[in-house]
Design a protein around this nucleic acid. Structure first.
Length: 402
DNA sequence: TCTGGGGTCCTAGGACCC
DNA sequence: TCTGGGGTCCTAGGACCC
């Protein structure tokens, strides 16, 4: 039998802002200005009626006293790091689940509940932020527990108490059950998490896909999801997308793609990764995706290689008569750059030279600020943000830049 | 909730093979 | 050829998470 702890920051982004700037204490703080929707809010803001996803213009109109700030993910990340470290004082079995959440396997501690209480105190004292903690025999139950009493909650669910907690819990609120599965299960006569756990295993096997089998076990208190405590800094994929005011213009869409490819490749280079597989898509006003996989002969993190392929295929993906709202690119099957080098002899020599050029470009960005130098093909997508007109020039193996 | 951005995992069904 | 049975691999896309 396991004992799993889950921690969840209360209005985390807003709490970080307050911790950094004590003058904000007691005020209705809302983050997400740059996105145009509220991403987190202080207790005071919640009390006013601000909720997640509320448009910022509405927040400002309805509650002029609210303090709306830009999100600062970099500093939230530092708070997250300190949170993980505090939990690691008690056990190395910590999973960094997201910027404001983590799991810990505290099964082997002499007094797990006591340890969790101490963790909670230390978080409050050292970070100036409250967390809601939940303890249960599985990750899913620990999640139920941490949500049970928010903010500043502390809830322990013993294996024999599970039913009490599940009997009024709507099935759609369970971690891992989204709108689609929720509707499906309700059609099968399941309203609450308890209803679900009371079906027998055979029924689950015959009626539901694999993720729900796992959930069924977890909800019954049998742990099947491990706490992934191994450090994990490699990506499975890198994606960059952006939404804009709807457009039908192919040259604009291409420049958006260019910008996304440029950004995704920059991130890949920062992590010394190359991609073996690239997809890009155009997203219509109706939220349909027109996708395409770019053929690659060698792993790469060079945007100009990818963009040449996109340029050659985009008019097949682009359909006349559609309004598009976003584009995006995904680099998947990432491999270390060093592996990428010895693939095809002829290609490699050329790539080595190009790699040098991109390294310099990354250096310039680091020295003078991100996007000091960009691909000229991305210019249209970026021009609104630039304060002075760009100078264009041609750089060998890079193409036109600005 | 009229819908932003960055991820992961799973599955149905087609292509291909013997 | 009007047609069996069984397998693997791949791809597109769905669903979910924060």
């Amino acid at each position: 039998m396991k004992t799993i702890l889950h921690l969840d920051g209360d209005g985390f982004f807003a709490a970080c802002e307050i911790s950094l700037n004590p003058k904000l204490k007691g005020k209705a703080v809302v983050t997400g200005q740059e996105r145009g929707i509220a991403t987190a809010m202080s207790r005071e803001a919640k009390a006013l009626g601000v909720h997640r996803g509320m448009p910022i213009y509405m927040v400002k109109k309805l509650y002029p006293e609210a303090v709306v700030v830009n999100s600062n993910y970099h500093s939230y990340g530092m708070f997250a790091q300190r949170m993980y470290d505090i939990v690691r004082r008690y056990t190395p079995l910590v999973e960094e689940y997201s910027i404001d959440e983590c799991f810990a396997d505290i099964s082997d501690l002499p007094d797990p509940v006591r340890a969790a209480e101490n963790i909670k105190k230390e978080l409050k004292r050292e970070l100036g932020i409250t967390f809601s903690l939940g303890i249960g025999p599985t990750k899913v139950i620990a999640k139920v527990a941490s949500k049970w009493n928010k903010p500043d909650g502390f809830t322990v669910i013993q294996p024999d108490e599970i039913e009490n907690f599940l009997k009024d819990l709507h099935i759609g609120k369970v971690w891992g059950i989204g709108p689609a599965t929720s509707t499906h299960l309700q059609r099968l006569g399941i309203q609450t998490a308890l209803d679900f756990t009371q079906r027998d295993e055979r029924w689950v096997r015959e009626n539901l896909p694999k993720p729900e089998h796992f959930l069924w076990h977890e909800l019954r208190g049998h742990s099947v999801y491990r706490v992934h405590h191994e450090p994990d800094d490699d990506y499975g994929s890198i994606q960059q997308t952006r939404t804009f005011t709807p457009s039908t213009k192919l040259d604009f869409l291409f420049s958006e793609l260019s910008k996304n490819v440029e950004g995704a490749c920059m991130k890949a280079r920062r992590h010394e990764l190359s991609t073996r597989r690239v997809y890009y898509f155009l997203k219509t006003q109706e939220f349909r995706y027109h996708r395409f996989e770019v053929p690659l002969t060698v792993p790469t993190n060079d945007p100009s290689v990818i963009l040449n392929e996109i340029r050659a295929t985009v008019d097949r993906v682009y359909k006349q008569g559609f309004e598009y709202r976003a584009t995006g690119v995904t680099l998947s099957e990432l491999v270390p750059e060093s592996v990428a080098q010895n693939d095809l002899f002829g290609e490699v020599v050329k790539n080595d030279k190009k790699r040098e050029v991109w390294k310099i470009s990354d250096l310039i960005d680091r020295r003078y600020g991100t996007h000091t130098m960009i691909l000229a093909s991305s210019l249209r997508a970026r021009e609104k943000r630039r304060t002075r007109p760009a100078r264009r020039l041609w750089i060998p193996s890079m193409g036109e830049v600005a």
